[in-house]
Design a binder for these strands. Sequence first.
DNA 1: GTCCTGACGAGCG
DNA 2: CCGCTCGCCAGGA
Length: 113
Amino acid sequence: MGRKASKTQPAEGESPREAIYRVVASIPEGQLTSYGQVAELAGLPKQARQVGRTLSQLPRDTRLPWFRVVNATGKISFPENSLGYQRQLERLLNEGSAETNGRLRWRECRWQP
DNA sequence: GTCCTGACGAGCG
DNA sequence: CCGCTCGCCAGGA
């Protein structure tokens, strides 16, 4: 098939972005995971940065549970004074994944997709 | 084309 | 625990 070899793709007929969306969408409510794990499950090992970059470009009205993705140190990957930090913490507080002091509660940070 | 940046992560001192 | 470096890679200037 005369197909122009694209750039790095996970190959399942999905673009890296689609794969990331699929994985993030599958994170169960009340559970947290890391950018690195999303990358791995999406078939993009060692590309945690690309996951972060992709999530940073999500539309505001997205239904994706992007807020369930935090960094490997178990913290929200935004400066504490930023709006992004507040929005993510708010969402996590809503489903009981965080304490009011901003401390995150890791309930089974690894799930089986 | 090159250079810099970034919602990351592991390693090292 | 903290700060720095290096690896990885897509995008924008």
